[in-house]
Structures are given as C-alpha cells and as structure tokens.
Computed example of a mutant assay.
Amino acid sequence: MSAQVGRFVTSKDGTKIWADDAGNKEGIPVIFIHGLACTGHAWDKQFHNPALLENLYMVRYELRGHSRSDYPWGAEWYTQQKYAEDFMAVCEGFGLKKPFVCGWSLGAATVCDVAQIFGPDIIAGVIFAGGPVITHSHHSNFSHAELRSNFPSFLDPSGDKQPQAAHVFVDSCLKYPARDLPYETRLKWLGGYLMQPPSIRKWTFSRAQEWDKWEKEFASKTPHLLVQGREDKHSDTEKMLPIAQGVLPHMEIKIIEDIGHAPAYEAAEEHDAYLLDFVLRVSGKKA
C-alpha cells in the first residue's frame, strides 16, 4: 500500500487535486470522497483493510479547498461544473473507467455533480458512507438540528473562535469521540478543519447545485447503498430515510446502531463488509 504520499492531478481549470491509491489495480475501482472540512485521512481504515485491498482498486482524493488540494479564492471556483471536472481529472489520472463512488457526508453530493454534468454512465454504483448530502437541496430538509445550531461557528471568520469550532466539529462526527478518537487521529481531523478558511467552507457548502438530470437519468437507475449511523448529528436519520427512499427508491439501507456520522470510522468492520458485498454483487463478481 502507498504511504499516503499521493500525487496531484490537474483539473480542467488548473486546480491541483491531491489523490492517492491503494489495493489491486486489477480489482474493482472505487473512488472515496471525504466530507466538508475533512481530508483523505477519513479513509485510513479502508486503506488498511486487507479484504478491500485484495478486491478493490481504491482511490481517494481531497476536494478543492481542502487539505493538500489547491485553495482557489472566490465563490466562482466552487461550482457544480468544477467539482464534476475534478472528479473526472482523478478518473483520468488513475485510469479509472466507470468506478464505484463511496461518498461521506458532503462528499456524497459530488455524485450528483458528476451525473448532472457528464451523464449517468460515468459511475457504476454509489455507497453513501453516512450522513450523505444527497443533493444540497435535499439535505436542507433533513440536516440535524445540532448541525444547524453549530454551523454559524463553523463559518465565523474570527481566528480566535475557529480552534474551539474545530473541536465542536470533530466531536460532532462521532457518537463517542472521547472513547473512539485517539489523540493522534484527532490531530489529523482538527488539522483538516483548521487548514480550511471559513470563506472556502461557506462557498463549498452553499454552492448552487442542479439535480434534474441526476434525478431523471441516474438516481433511480444506478445501484445505491446507504450505510448510516442511527445517531448521526449531521443528518437526522429518521428525517433522511423517507426523503432518500423517495428519490432513490431501490437504494439498499444498512442502519448501524449506537454510532454517529462516521460509520466508515466508527464501525469500519461493518461498513467495509457492506461496501465490499455491494460492490462485488453489483459487479457480478460475488461468488
């Protein structure tokens, strides 16, 4: 496995996007996309899982305005078109043809971007790894009250306030952060948040997103799997499920009890087993 050195691919507008790969290059391709104010480290457990490494060719990348990728300044750099082009640059850079996509939280919205801009045949299947922003419009109907309460602090430009906001954000991602997040890992998550200027966080989260073509040509036809923590504090699980089932009627749903917003971290063994089973079945490679 690569040691998270990674490399950069160049998007259509010249933005450098950091990405890294691992696993079997002859295996099923899966792209992993992290959430808002996070990094590729969100997928460290998956990139150390022997079963995934054996069966999948895994690529993770960091969204523009996050971590090691470029931070272009101005809302015009954070549009649906550009997010879709970043995804395609990663596919081209790593030679991926019709990959699966595993998106966490805000990262899941990239699926809509790609399908809307480049059509329904780019992605083989989708895994929503907890609290998915299915589309920006849909998320507004099931965002958790705690997230809405905390969000003004996440966008506050005051340097004095951001360290505390970072701790609140990281804690909100897990049900038991004191128990489940070792200090070294916590530093990585805090660092990812604090590297991002609040203005870019705002442009990333509040960007416009069209989804008519996604809904008509992709949402109901492409296989989807949702792995969701029951006690997610970013997306209200009970509100989200009927909305998600309305736009994704054939989506498989796996609810994991007693965890929060980050099933790929909090319940990695279960999450990874669901992911691998789904990818193998959809690919026709399930024994």
Rank of each mutant, 00 (worst) to 15 (best):
T222K: 01
L147N: 12
I253D: 05
M251A: 15
F128Y: 14
A267I: 15
A178M: 06
D160Y: 08
N49D: 13
P120M: 06
H34L: 02
G246P: 01
G246F: 08
Q245R: 14
W77H: 15
T185R: 08
E217N: 11
K25V: 10
E76A: 11
G27I: 04
E215G: 02
F32A: 13
Y193H: 12
K233R: 13
V282E: 15
A268W: 15
P198Y: 02
H224R: 14
S220D: 08
A124C: 13
H139V: 05
P132I: 11
Y265E: 06
F278G: 09
Y265A: 11
D13I: 07
D277M: 05
T185W: 09
L187T: 08
F142R: 00
K188H: 07
A22M: 07
G35P: 12
V282P: 06
S69L: 05
Y183E: 11
I259M: 09
N150A: 15
D44E: 11
H144R: 08
W211F: 10
L147H: 10
Q245M: 12
L248K: 03
H138F: 13
K233D: 08
A244G: 09
Q209K: 00
A84H: 02
H138V: 08
K161Y: 08
A129Y: 12
K213P: 00
P152Q: 05
K286V: 00
A19F: 02
S67I: 02
S2Y: 01
K175G: 02
A89T: 13
G93A: 11
F205T: 03
I127H: 03
E231V: 01
P163M: 06
N49Q: 03
D86F: 01
V111T: 09
A262K: 05
G229H: 02
D13W: 07
V227F: 03
F205V: 04
E257A: 13
V90S: 03
G103I: 15
L174T: 07
